[in-house]
Design a protein around this nucleic acid. Sequence first.
DNA 1: ATTTTATCTTGACAGTCGTCAAGGAAAAAT
DNA 2: ATTTTTCCTTGACGACTGTCAAGATAAAAT
Lengths: 214, 214
Amino acid sequence: MTVETIEAPRKARAGAKGPRVPVDKFSARRVELAEAALETLAELGYARTSLREIAQNSKFTHGVFHYYFSDKIELICFCVRYYKAKCVTRYDQVVATAQTRDALMAGFLEKLGDTIRDEAPMHRLWYDLRAQSLFEDAFREDVAAIDNSLEAMIWRIASRFAELGHKKPAVSSGALYAVFDGLFQRYLLRHLSGDPQAIPTFLDEVKALLPIVA
Amino acid sequence: MTVETIEAPRKARAGAKGPRVPVDKFSARRVELAEAALETLAELGYARTSLREIAQNSKFTHGVFHYYFSDKIELICFCVRYYKAKCVTRYDQVVATAQTRDALMAGFLEKLGDTIRDEAPMHRLWYDLRAQSLFEDAFREDVAAIDNSLEAMIWRIASRFAELGHKKPAVSSGALYAVFDGLFQRYLLRHLSGDPQAIPTFLDEVKALLPIVA
DNA sequence: ATTTTATCTTGACAGTCGTCAAGGAAAAAT
DNA sequence: ATTTTTCCTTGACGACTGTCAAGATAAAAT
């Protein structure tokens, strides 16, 4: 669920050849570089992120990228896929443990607030890359896949919430994702603009909305 | 409602001085350049749009921009404000003329389809610039203003739709905007990806959703 | 210990970028 | 008709970009 989606197309690497073989140093370094890239992208945005800038957030120099990636586009695509694997299960723990509507609501709101507070830069990157996919074909497939995964995640929360109230969600999966995603994006902007009311207002919105739609 | 929001800070221009004074050639040229810039931005996206590229979509050369704008940022901010004025009243005609829920729904859906079909490049630019505002302080104020104007526009539609059914909107203005904006962005991506079902599916979603929320 | 392979750095390449100064061209004022 | 002002082009600047070849360094294999 995490690593298999991030293949390392190179030679015939990491066959189950022997016990002492360095299992996949190549892939490990790709991940290491991707993490440096994500950090830089989250800080500067897609338009201003250069390979040399990424390299300064790692322990390597700028030339290393063409050893591990064919070009900048492939690096960023790899980043997008890697980022996906870390995101789409964020709320599953809450869904699995909550036994009542109130508990699920409370757990969801708490995680939502944590996310927007602690990971704002990484999420603005997500919105940036999704916008880039409107222009750059190479990004579309991976971005659409993440979008679908996030939609499924929201659907799991909402349908469980409905189930705990002996109801069914009132709107489609797509509309559900749209409204939560839209609200998140909106209050992320306000939060980054320095509005201290952004997070509490956001949580109030969600608290009022969720019982209506599910 | 259109021009006053786009001031031309330069000297003491266009005082009601005389009859033969060229009323505001300076502002007119700024608008002309902004239109070339918007065309280029819609085509290439923020990250790949250069002043030289914009100039090639106009009848001037790249040096002209520093005569009319202090720098690239100011040019793009001006574009954003100019773009706003053209967008926020798009559906007002429909709201003003429709006398029944069905007529309002039909008019809304038709304009919505036209918009995503005929103005996809300009709208992907909007999502791009909104994402840029998450990184670039200079954009935030103008982007937030557009967001608020669009939210008010959606609210006018939905509350009129509710009124025609002797109801009131079931969710907040912010949530309403979020869901329509989120759906629009989603199906814009699919439409640009070449999915021929994108627009009809989008309209079906909206048709099912609007009666639920208003 | 020596050879071979894997990994990373360095430095340069051909472009592109925003910016700006100098001056030509056009328009307006005199 | 001449001067003055406005408008726009040209060409250059320093900085930055992705890319890549050549070679240094480190690791592994022999």
